[in-house]
């Protein structure tokens, strides 16, 4: 891991800041010098995980690049809530073109910077899971394959939330969406094969691939920092809970991300050149029910009759993650 928890401080380093840490060990988000790349006044829902994840990631990237950063953004919540005419929340050079072409737009920007000899300016591309795992997948794979000098950040909230919560290829099994209704004998999203984009990214052997959640800020920032140490294609997949689409209380956004990690549902790791180099261990393991229960999109698993069979399958998937990525501290 590029992020080493500091032991024996009052709060460890799990909080955003820590007044006991020296300045250079503090998180970007704890400082008043953070850029607030995504400014106040944006129109994201209350408790939006994506707004949070975007500010975390982009502020960190701004810090690392000394403010020399350009962002390309896919169509989606992040774009819509941040830039409705006549106001934008972005404080950095930012461009939105289309839903499915963000990686390619970023490639173009990177090419322009290279040809102009402005290598100090770095490029990020960002989009939601739909813009990444579905419609933008072709462009993303092309960008990976060519190893274009772009950090692509996927804010994964498991569905097309902007259009009213429809299913994407990142929607987890059994989750209710507007197009996978919680009706019939197998309510919610069918158990498919999944589309593990971080693994697909790793299969391109690009220099750096990592996953993160909004519940572990320090880890997330460390990964952005690490990503920026490489040239070439890099991929960061951030789990960002969506109170609207997941149907949890707006105050639980970070908690849901934490439970996704602590249950093994969402493995947090990083990989360099196609090899896993570090995982974020589970600190206090929880059964998947604890993650599923506060979310209305899984309400049909608990009532009118408990669907232990479905929950067991979800638990099995989490356990597989735990085994595959060795998410538990070995005794």
């Amino acid at each position: 891991m590029s992020f080493q928890p500091v032991k024996f401080y009052q709060t460890g380093t799990f909080t955003v800041g820590n007044r006991l840490l020296p300045d250079n060990e503090r998180s970007v988000q704890s400082t008043v010098r953070r850029t607030n790349s995504l400014n106040s006044g944006h129109r994201a829902c209350q408790g939006c995980g994506e707004a949070l994840g975007a500010r975390y990631a982009i502020d960190a990237a701004m810090e690392v690049t000394n403010g020399q950063l350009i962002a390309a953004n896919a169509t989606g919540c992040l774009e819509v809530f941040s830039t409705p005419y006549p106001e934008t929340s972005w404080q950095i050079p930012w461009v939105h073109s289309l839903f499915g072409n963000t990686a390619a737009v970023a490639t173009g920007i990177a090419a322009a910077l290279r040809v102009k000899g402005r290598s100090e300016t770095r490029v990020v591309a960002q989009g939601g899971d739909g813009g990444t795992t579905d419609i933008g997948f072709g462009c993303l794979s092309g960008m990976f394959e060519r190893n274009d000098d772009v950090l692509y950040i996927c804010y994964d909230n498991g569905g097309y939330m902007n259009t009213g919560v429809q299913r994407s290829s990142a929607t987890p099994p059994a989750a209710r969406t507007a197009t996978t209704a919680a009706v019939g004998p197998t309510p919610g999203n069918p158990f498919g094969q999944g589309k593990d984009l971080p693994a697909i990214a790793m299969a391109h052997n690009i220099p750096y691939v990592a996953t993160a959640t909004v519940s572990e800020l320090r880890d997330l920032e460390a990964k952005v920092r690490r990503a920026m140490e490489f040239r070439g294609a890099r991929y960061l997949h951030i789990l960002v809970p969506c109170p609207l689409g997941w149907g949890h209380d707006s105050s639980l956004t970070i908690r849901m991300a934490r439970l996704a990690h602590e249950s093994g549902i969402f493995p947090v790791f990083e990989a360099e050149n196609g090899e896993v180099t570090g995982v974020s261990k589970i600190r206090r393991q929880v059964p998947v029910e604890e993650y599923l229960k506060p979310q209305k999109r899984y309400a049909h698993l608990f009532a009118p009759r408990p669907r232990e069979d479905v929950i067991r399958r979800i638990q099995e998937a989490a356990d597989r993650n735990i085994r595959r990525y060795r998410l538990l501290e070995e005794a």
Binding site: G108, I109, G142
Partner: peptide, 27 residues
């Protein structure tokens, strides 16, 4: 100086041109 990029589709071709042009390059 010129960057020649072999893209994976025409959609990407125009998109790369969009990004390059937006960043101030003749595309």
């Amino acid at each position: 100086p010129c960057e020649f990029i072999n893209v994976e589709s025409e959609f990407a071709a125009m998109s790369v041109a969009i990004g390059a042009s937006a960043a101030g390059a003749r595309a």
